[in-house]
Design a protein around this nucleic acid. Sequence first.
DNA 1: TAAATATTTAGACATTCGTTTAAATATTTA
DNA 2: TAAATATTTAAACGAATGTCTAAATATTTA
Lengths: 95, 95
Amino acid sequence: MEITFKAINDPTRREILVFLIGGAQNAGEIAKQFSMSKPSISHHLDLLKQGDLIIAEKKGQYIIYSLNRTGFELVHGWFQGFAQYFEFPKPKIRL
Amino acid sequence: MEITFKAINDPTRREILVFLIGGAQNAGEIAKQFSMSKPSISHHLDLLKQGDLIIAEKKGQYIIYSLNRTGFELVHGWFQGFAQYFEFPKPKIRL
DNA sequence: TAAATATTTAGACATTCGTTTAAATATTTA
DNA sequence: TAAATATTTAAACGAATGTCTAAATATTTA
C-alpha cells in the first residue's frame, strides 16, 4: 500500500505507466522515452515493480516490463472508500 | 496534479482523508486523532488543501475541514486511463 | 482590554528521494 | 572464448520531506 502510493508519486514513474498502456516494452525502449540516465530509469522501474504496478519478465538479455493489475486494484480499492461520500444518489428507476 | 499525488503519498494525510469521510471536522478534532504535534497536522492539512483534496472554512475561531471532490476526480481521472487496459470485454447484450 | 483558546507560521534538523557516474552481472554474437 | 549489448547495483550528493519546538495571528470570553 505504502510503497504503491510512493511509486505513483513520481512524475517520471507515472509517465512510464502511461507509456506501458501502449504495450509491454523492454527497459532500453522505456529509457529511450526519457532524457534521463538508464540507471535512473532502472531505479524507477524497480520502485514500480515493488508497488506491484508493473511486472518484469526476463527474455534473453532483455527484461520486458508490462502493467500489473495488482497495484492498480489496490489504489482503486482505496479510492472506492470515497465514492460513497461523493456519489450523487442514483435514480431508483431505470432511465 | 503533481501536488495532489504528493498529498496522497503520506500515510498520515491518507488517514486524515479517511477520517473526514465521517464528516467535516475542525483542525483540533483532527489533530486529536493522531499522536503528532498540532503544527505537523496543520502542515498536512495545508498540503491536502493544496492538492484540492480538502476544503477549509473558517467558522469563528475554528477552521472546519471537509473533503473536496476536485482532487479525487483528478486522481480518478488519471486512473481511468488504465481502466481500458485492464477491463475485460463487456458483453454486447444486456444480461 | 486582558486572558484564554484555536490554529498557523517560522526555523531547525534528521531522513528520504531522485539523480549521476562508475562498476558489476548476465546474455548473445563473432 | 572474447567482445558487444542490455540492464542493474553501488556510491555519492544536493534537494525535498516530515517532524519538532517556539513564536505569531486571530477569535472569543471574562
